[in-house]
Nucleic acid binder design. Structure first.
Ligand SMILES: [Zn+2]
Ligand SMILES: [Zn+2]
Ligand SMILES: [Zn+2]
Ligand SMILES: [Zn+2]
Lengths: 153, 153
DNA sequence: GTTGACTCTGGACCCCACTCCAAGGTTTAT
DNA sequence: ATAAACCTTGGAGTGGGGTCCAGAGTCAAC
């Protein structure tokens, strides 16, 4: 009934990471194989696959390995922690994620208005509103926070 | 009329970075002072302040220094590039920002439902829905993509 | 004219997250 | 029984993004 355990190469393929990365994560306490074979081969379970996927998606959105470790550590610390502790850790991450989203939305708006202002034609960009906005006075305050000049000649 | 130029320490304070960081960015082509004093001191203008702020806010939302350099390089490449070129670079960044926002929103939702499911009380967390979700089956697919179990005893 | 705060350069060093060996042991396929 | 493919450990190397420091010049104030 129990599904067969995976060797490191198999897990690596399924998860799309290198074997080195798996060993690296293990060395740093983020992953360890469910078992070892007689010969010392690492053997991974389906949970292990879930776990590496968890790590990867958390990484993708900007959590550091240390932060991910904290999240994962919740699982094993169980009865030493209260629900309060656990929840507040999650809420903390939630706040930083929310914060990051806001920053990105600010940036996105700026980029969008830059893009909108540009004619996109193939003449030399000497007149380009984007370049003007970037080099101007307020080029920095929020990735060009300002209004771009009146466009269309 | 012209505002006085800033020495490196002054700019560093205003921008909240170290002098080393400013010199580091200079070495890597992201910033250079508008002028040098007789004695070779770096002298920065108000634009330079804007520029470092630009760099910092771009960095904050996850652009690498190399990407930031590309954005800034637009300013000087002007007539070698067409509006098309310029705009498509901006649109590219726009797409990656949008992408990042989506990922973060996915994560945020997951964290939110984790948080919502937890009672937050101060008893030991042996029963905690968060921990259950993390260690469970689908802990990985999207930072715990699944429904958490029925809560409230 | 000396003290103290500031700046210069160059180079060493650090953390992070991998990535790439080298030297060897194991498994599988023929 | 031997080769190819796979695994082991340990350790070195890489690239990004800085940080720290030594040795020396500069500037303002007293
Ligand atoms: Zn144009
Ligand atoms: Zn344009
Ligand atoms: Zn609870
Ligand atoms: Zn709980």
């Amino acid at each position: 009934m129990k599904r067969p355990l995976l060797k490191i190469g198999e897990l690596a393929n399924l998860a799309n990471v290198s074997q080195d990365t798996l060993r690296f994560y293990e060395k740093h306490g983020l992953m360890r194989p469910s078992a070892r074979s007689e010969a010392g081969y690492r053997l991974y379970s389906a949970q292990d696959l879930q776990r590496i996927r968890f790590i990867l998606s958390a990484k993708e959105v900007g959590f550091t390995l240390k932060e991910i470790e904290e999240l994962l550590a919740l699982e094993v610390t169980r009865d030493e922690k209260s629900c309060q502790d656990v929840k507040s850790l999650v809420d903390e991450k939630l706040a930083t994620v929310t914060q990051r989203i806001h920053e990105l939305q600010r940036i996105k708006k700026s980029l969008q208005s830059l893009s909108d202002a540009c004619c996109g034609g193939d003449e030399p960009a000497t007149h380009c509103t984007i370049l003007e906005a970037l080099s101007d006075h307020d080029a920095g305050s929020s990735l060009v926070g300002g209004k771009h000049h009146d466009l269309i000649k």
